[in-house]
Amino acid sequence: MRTTAALGVAIALSIGATAPANAITNLLTSDVGYSGPGLNLSAFQNGNYNFTFGPITVDQYTFTAAPGGGGNSGLGSVVGQGSYGLNGNGSFGGDAVYIGVDSATGYAQLMLNGGPVSQLGFFMNYAAPPFGDDPTIWALDALGNPFASFDLATLAPISTPGGFNEFEFRGISSDSADIYGLRFGGSYILVTGTANGEVIGGVPEPATWAMFLLGFGAIGFTMRRRRAGAKLMARLA
């Protein structure tokens, strides 16, 4: 049974940040009991990479990205689908839709358009060293400045060697509704809305429809057999 873990208390203030007074924040390592907003990337389920620095609207957020050293394309972060490798933490592609920071030192962020919350987190994974040594998430204030940060590699490492489309939940909670967005970076890092990267409410694949029809057929056959059995018992009574 998974439990929501609060690993450490951080008040990591950045220069110039307008952090909430006496903000107490915790690192979330599970979505059990999570009450914050989700991330629906169905609008980007098109089978192609979309490189951008933003700003663009992504679900209920405004997405922006900052370049960093060691980027593959120099075109910005990935928002969409495509094959993506994270060194020792497996590979990603197929039906997975995600935001990928295309740099070992840059970052991306999602600012809420509907106001602050007390919890914010997503499913994510990141590249094992040496392709980014400092995977980090930050809580952002109303001006987009970080007021709390957590080093994932130290506090809540993600290890999925040889996995395919495997994400783990990471987020930040606060003692009050003062989180306006989440920043993630310091490594090649992917962020998505579900544990396998598939979009919420996606259209089932043809094979899935076939399984649905097979299931409904089996249910109908069972019900017909039960009715026939009931009639036979009534005649014998």
Rank of each mutant, 00 (worst) to 15 (best):
M1G: 07
A5S: 14
A6F: 15
G8R: 10
G8M: 10
V9C: 12
A10S: 08
A12I: 12
I15M: 05
I15H: 07
T18N: 10
A19R: 04
A19E: 09
P20Y: 01
A23P: 00
L28Y: 09
L28M: 15
S30A: 14
G33D: 15
N40W: 05
N40S: 06
F44A: 10
G47D: 06
F51Y: 12
T52W: 12
P55F: 13
P55C: 13
V58C: 09
Q60C: 00
Q60R: 08
Q60S: 09
T64M: 12
A65W: 07
P67Y: 07
G71N: 03
S73C: 01
G76C: 01
V78N: 08
G85P: 11
F92I: 14
F92V: 14
D95K: 09
D95P: 09
D95A: 11
A96C: 05
V97C: 04
I99T: 12
G100M: 12
V101A: 10
D102F: 09
A104P: 00
T105H: 06
G106T: 07
Y107K: 12
M111L: 14
N113L: 15
G114Y: 02
G115V: 12
V117C: 07
S118H: 15
Q119T: 14
M124C: 15
N125Q: 04
Y126A: 05
A128C: 00
F131N: 07
G132E: 02
D133R: 02
P135Q: 00
T136E: 00
I137L: 08
W138I: 06
A139K: 02
D141W: 02
D141G: 03
A142W: 01
L143N: 09
N145Q: 14
L152G: 04
L155D: 07
S159P: 00
T160F: 14
F164I: 03
N165W: 08
N165K: 10
F167R: 09
E168C: 09
F169Y: 06
R170E: 13
R170D: 13
G171T: 13
I172R: 06
S173I: 04
D175K: 05
D178E: 11
I179H: 07
I179R: 10
Y180M: 14
R183Y: 11
F184A: 14
G185H: 02
G185M: 08
G185T: 05
S187G: 01
S187I: 06
Y188A: 14
N196G: 14
P204S: 07
T208C: 09
A210N: 05
A218Y: 00
T222A: 13
T222D: 10
R224G: 01
R227P: 00
A228L: 02
G229T: 05
K231T: 02
K231W: 03
R235A: 08
R235K: 08
A237S: 04
